[in-house]
Amino acid sequence: MAEVAANGITFHLQRLRRQSSDRAPETDGPVVVFLHGLVIDNLSSLYYSLANPVAQVGADAILYDQRGHGLSERPPSGYRIEDSVADLGRLLESLEVAGPVHLVGHSYGASVALRAALAEPERFASLVLVEPHCAESHDGGDWVEDVADMLTAGALSLEHNPVASNLSASERRKFRGVHATDSFLNATSLIEDIASSPPFTDDELRGLQLPVLAIYGEYTDLASSARKLAACIPHCRLEVLPGLGHAVLRDARDVVLGMVESWLAGFSQVGGGEAGQ
């Protein structure tokens, strides 16, 4: 397991590069960093679906479990989006990654990618945002508040329904995930920190000059975010996948992968990068 220390946290990180005929890693494409979603998610959701295929066509694919997630360290506090942005920056410095990188974010990971690009645009070449939240309100209310409420409900449920003992080995393994989620929600400041995330303003999105590919499902609850990104970000291409909701990565992996590969192929290493096709 690759462990990288950055920003006071030990992160689980995977770096995928195609092997040449003599088994040495080779890269003739861009550096692409993948950011996964919240709580029950970790780098494995992007490892097989997007990162590995992208690495096989030449990219230097970097994935890491964000703080508190997967096999990375889980501090009791520090789950604001600003903390996640700082983690990304310090990780890139620890890895001595030179030059602008492409970010591919999924769900909350895409929100982190967007906030990171607003903070340090010179560090990044482009953004691929799969179902990020960025609007202050959505159909049915405030999404951040809804997510915080859902996480709180989940945490209370876990507190009041402790896992039974005398389980078989298989059952113990199944409940391991439940225990992990329980400790994450009930023993850290995650929920409060997520709930206090600052909104993305129209003005700051209008100032983002990076090329952005935004991918949403037609029936996503985050339709307001999709409209906001398309309306505000100067170089944003919005792709809406028909018939799908928030889970576009799960339900239409091949389509999303094709879009990501085409997007990255549209950039040239020579000349410092052009808008993706």
Binding site: M1, Q14, N42, S44, S45, Y47, Y48, S170, R173
Partner: peptide
Amino acid sequence: ELESIEFVAMAE
């Protein structure tokens, strides 16, 4: 019943 993250660890 290998979880995805365990599959990644096994691959490594």
